[in-house]
Design a protein around this nucleic acid. Structure first.
Length: 601
RNA sequence: GGGGGCGUGGUGAAGUCUGGAGUUCACGCCGGCCUGUCAAGCCGGAGGUCGCGGGUUCAAAUCCCGUCGCUCCCGCCA
């Protein structure tokens, strides 16, 4: 290594075997311990931290420079790696066996006093962290998350490469495609009054790639959906998107398994030996009350309608007579006081239940419950039997329309059973999704985009409300990680599906005529998937939201506190686009106290 | 669009329920001392329009109304 190099070693990589070697380090002052004479500095770079010893008697720099060192100064240190003296080894530091004795120190760049500490011991307000994200990512939490994200994407690319996939970039300025969500729009200057949409997914392009003879495609794709934010939703996010020709569902699920195994291995150093559990959408709903079941814990929903077929209890008999259901879960030994049980009742009501019956199995086998006196001995025995209840267990029972019962119990199941960490991982495939969601009023709305192949076209046409599609989801710990489907590869079939979904043939021709035509040129059967990378990494990292995994995320209101986006633009710029901001909107600006654009103009 | 939580020196928190002097704690910052620490230590000091606006009151960080920001959730989002 020549002397001209700004650094010859990484701080975090030094170990006892480097003792005696001369190194040039460069990084930031993470901490300083100034004893008046000798000064210890924790020098941090991207690789980690090492202790640098500055002794003025050895003249690494002037007294003024040495005692003037402050947190996060960017410095270069030339010195010698040496074992730490007896009794001063730091077992908490990976490089704690050694230290670097400095022969010279140069301040490359001073730092202002920091807006918040970078020590990782305090939870800084997130808006502040995002405003100074470049400092925030010097902290180990974000730095490690960025590395994990990189590792995950590398693992995905490795699997894809090994499986013979071709990485293809698809455009991000496209025509609006129907994915269900609101499109992010970009105005066109060359065709005023026209707009590009940012892709919600590369859906139609990857299908075109299949038609184009690319048999296996993948992409680490930025996707955009202009909907409200959640802890696991941002308007822009990243997916591993892939598609295979001459493929059906089985090939897709097996590929997902390869990806999941590799990512979990690389990020958690855990081998997933068991095949990923598969269940149908109907099974998921019946057993867990949701299409994204958290199967780290069992606690299945049990149907108690049989038990109460002839009950005297009006709250139950009324519902059953109205073709509803009575179902329950065994919450296990919750040990809740009356107030806690009442809390569950109000939570059940919050999600739509008229009420919730709780029961606690008492020592001598009797049942404590507000409704116990309305139920027969036989019914109580049957409840205990069906729910496989033991002494101390809390049973939760809901009677209502079947859909409501499942929703409520699915919610309560999470409330009482969901683990509070992601130490354990439970993947699941949910397959055989219905084509339509049935609303309370019986109306149908498509559950998936219209390019999803139906399991059976006749069923779709004759009884659409019961039709199954060849669509499937990947779920991890109760979070939907991604979705995919077998696609329609036949133009006539595609036209029929458009029709059933309520898209008129004129409308379909106008918006997707080009795609319907493409399907007519020997389209191979194909299927694919997309995995949400931000979500997957956030769960594997045990982070509570995907912002921790995204380098520069936006706040819940869609703003970036660092750069000030979204911002107003000059009217000149709008003029070129043929755009005039509505007078109402302009008027509302006057009442806003704090606007970036206002001060820039 | 709706519901909940939060907003107090640079940072994090306590104080707010039950109104009574900008009070407290930790970190950071400034100055001094200090040659083996590693969240270094010791002594001293500075620093706040309690998010903003209005109201109630003799008196508001505290109660009320509004508003802004952040966040969690419902709707929305395959």
């Amino acid at each position: 290594m020549g002397r001209h190099l700004m650094k010859t070693a990484d701080a975090g990589s030094l170990s006892a075997t480097d003792a005696g070697s001369d190194v040039t380090l460069a990084g930031w002052i993470g901490r300083r311990r100034d004893h008046g004479g000798v000064i210890f500095v924790d020098l941090r770079d991207a690789s980690g931290v090492v202790q640098v010893v500055l002794n003025p008697e050895e003249e690494p720099a002037s007294e003024e420079v040495l005692h003037g060192l402050r947190l996060e100064y960017c410095v270069q240190v030339v010195g010698t790696v040496r074992p730490r003296p007896e009794g001063t080894v730091n077992p908490d530091l990976p490089t704690g066996m050694v230290e670097v004795s400095a022969s010279s120190l140069i301040v490359l760049s001073e730092s202002d006093v920091l807006p918040f500490p970078l020590d990782g011991r305090t939870d800084i307000d997130e808006a502040k962290r995002l405003e100074y994200r470049y400092l925030d990512m010097r902290r180990s939490r974000v730095a490690e998350n960025l590395r994990a994200r990189s590792m995950a994407i590398r693992a995905m690319r490795n699997v894809m490469d090994e499986q013979g996939f071709l990485e293809v970039e698809t455009p991000t300025l496209i025509a609006s495609t129907p994915e269900g969500a609101r499109d992010m729009l970009v105005p066109s200057r060359l065709r005023q009054g026209h707009f590009y949409a940012l892709p919600q997914s590369p859906q139609l392009f990857k299908q075109l790639l299949m038609i184009g003879g690319v048999e296996r495609y993948y992409q680490v794709a930025k996707c955009y959906r202009d909907e409200d934010f959640r802890s696991d939703r941002q308007i822009e996010f990243t997916q591993l998107d892939f598609e295979g020709a001459f493929w059906g569902q089985e090939e897709v699920l097996q590929t997902i398994e390869l990806v999941a195994r590799r990512v979990v291995k690389d990020l958690r150093d855990v081998e997933l030996n068991e095949p990923i559990v598969r269940m149908t959408h109907a099974e998921a709903m019946r057993n867990y009350g949701t299409d994204k079941p958290d199967i780290r814990f069992d606690m299945r929903i049990a149907d108690l309608s049989e038990v109460f077929a002839a009950t005297e209890f009006k709250a139950f008999s009324g519902v059953l007579g109205d073709s509803g259901s009575v179902m329950g879960i065994n919450g296990g030994p919750l040990g809740l006081a009356r107030s806690g049980l009442d809390g569950l009742v109000s939570q059940a009501q919050d999600v739509g239940a008229k009420g919730l019956v709780w029961m606690v199995v008492e020592e001598e086998g009797s049942i404590r419950s507000p409704v116990a006196k309305f139920l027969s001995e036989a019914e109580l025995r049957e409840i205990v039997s069906v729910l496989d209840a033991s002494v101390g267990d809390t049973l939760l029972i809901v009677a209502d329309r079947t859909k409501t019962v499942l929703e409520v119990l699915g919610h309560l199941r999470l409330v009482v059973g969901k683990p509070d960490s992601h130490d354990e991982l439970a993947f699941a495939f949910v397959v055989d999704f219905p084509v339509f969601d049935v609303a309370d009023d019986g109306s149908l709305s498509p559950a998936h985009h219209p390019f999803t192949a139906p399991a059976d076209i006749d069923t779709l046409i004759n009884t659409p409300e019961t039709a199954i599609s060849k669509a499937y989801d990947l779920v991890l710990n109760g979070t939907e990680l991604g979705s995919g489907s077998v696609r329609i590869h036949n133009s006539d079939m595609q036209a029929k599906v458009f029709e059933v979904m309520g898209i008129s043939s004129e409308d379909a021709e106008g918006r997707f005529g080009w795609f319907l035509e493409a399907l007519r040129y020997g389209t191979p059967p194909h299927a694919g998937f997309a995995i949400g990378i931000d979500r997957m990494v956030s769960i594997l990292r045990g982070e509570p939201n995907i912002r921790e995994i995204i380098p520069f995320p936006k706040t819940q209101s869609g703003a970036d506190p660092l750069t000030g986006s979204p911002s107003r633009v000059e009217s000149l710029q709008l003029g070129e686009l043929g755009i005039l901001v509505s007078p109402d909107v302009v008027a509302s600006w006057d009442s806003e106290p704090d606007q970036e654009a206002a001060s820039e103009s």
